[in-house]
């Protein structure tokens, strides 16, 4: 099994030769669905080069790189991290809609920014270090 980390999730996937995975697993990890037009999410499709496709397999690394997202791996390539494409982050911020997130409080209760819609929010970071 290969471990794949995304900014918000963690998956154990059968992958070989880098990140060749089944279309079902590609969708589980990225939310993008393989269609004849390419990899699709909502109305948007990103065409894939022929070299990134095989019968019932897709090269996730090639797809993610095409999206502009970083793909990094551990030394033995048993753990991978797919980062958010910078243009996706920039577009989200430039739209000025505060990106939503869900994080636990001290007791492990998940809290989402979107629960506070209707109130002003002073969102601040801190650290013990």
């Amino acid at each position: 099994m290969t471990k794949i980390l995304t900014p918000t999730s963690e998956h154990d996937i059968a992958a070989h030769d880098g990140l060749w995975v089944s279309p079902v697993d590609a969708e589980r990890v990225t939310g993008w669905i393989l269609k004849p037009e390419g990899m699709c999410r909502a109305d948007l499709c990103v065409p894939l080069p022929a070299a990134a496709l095989a019968p019932n397999e897709v090269d996730l690394r090639a797809f993610w790189t095409k999206l502009g997202g970083p793909v990094v791996a551990s030394e033995t390539q048993d753990v991978w991290a797919l980062g958010a494409p910078p243009e996706e982050r920039n577009a989200a911020l430039e739209g000025l809609e505060a990106p939503d997130f869900t994080l636990p409080d001290l007791d492990g209760v998940p809290r989402s920014l979107s629960q506070l819609r209707g109130r002003k929010v002073f969102l601040a970071t801190w650290a013990s270090w």
Binding site: R119, K120, W126
Partner: peptide
Amino acid sequence: VPQAIWIDEQGRI
């Protein structure tokens, strides 16, 4: 840290 973002009632930065 610390950095802050001010978010209004409509969820806008």
